[in-house]
């Protein structure tokens, strides 16, 4: 569990300006699901899961994902990115404990 928040990213190298590439990103996170006690009652607590993923390219927002607990553990997301100029892609994951984990990738031609 010490690895919580490790973000890995895979970005293909675009070959020409304006190409749309598919970015894949993976974060190590437990994405806790609702637990029930022996009689089947839902246990109320502050479950720890990623609820917001924001991707920006050179500071411009590409997309924002609102996730829930019904997304798998160690979630993997893939999304498109139109590359008009070289730059830095940043993906930030925020979980319900208030922690933000970031991954960056540099895109060059």
């Amino acid at each position: 569990m010490s690895e919580i928040g490790k973000v890995r990213m895979r970005v293909p190298t675009p070959t020409k300006k304006g190409e749309i590439v598919t970015v894949r990103t993976l974060i190590t996170h437990p994405m806790e699901i609702v637990k029930r006690d022996k009689v089947g009652k839902v246990i109320e607590k502050n479950y720890n899961f990623v609820y917001k993923v924001v991707a920006t390219y050179n500071g411009k927002k590409i997309l924002e994902v609102e996730t829930t607990q019904s997304v798998s553990q160690n979630p993997l997301f893939a999304f498109p990115l139109k590359v008009d100029e070289p730059g830095v892609l940043k993906v930030a994951f925020t979980d319900t404990q208030g922690k933000t984990y970031e991954g960056t990738a540099e895109i060059k031609f």
Binding site: I20, E64, V65, T68, S70, S72, L76, A78
Partner: peptide, 30 residues
Amino acid sequence: SDKNRRPLNAKVNFTPEAGKAYFAANLRLG
């Protein structure tokens, strides 16, 4: 997903910067 306790799995908000509407993830289905 219709049969989940909370059916909404994820909502993806795009901007035109994305270039196209594509999204992939792993879901939990009950």
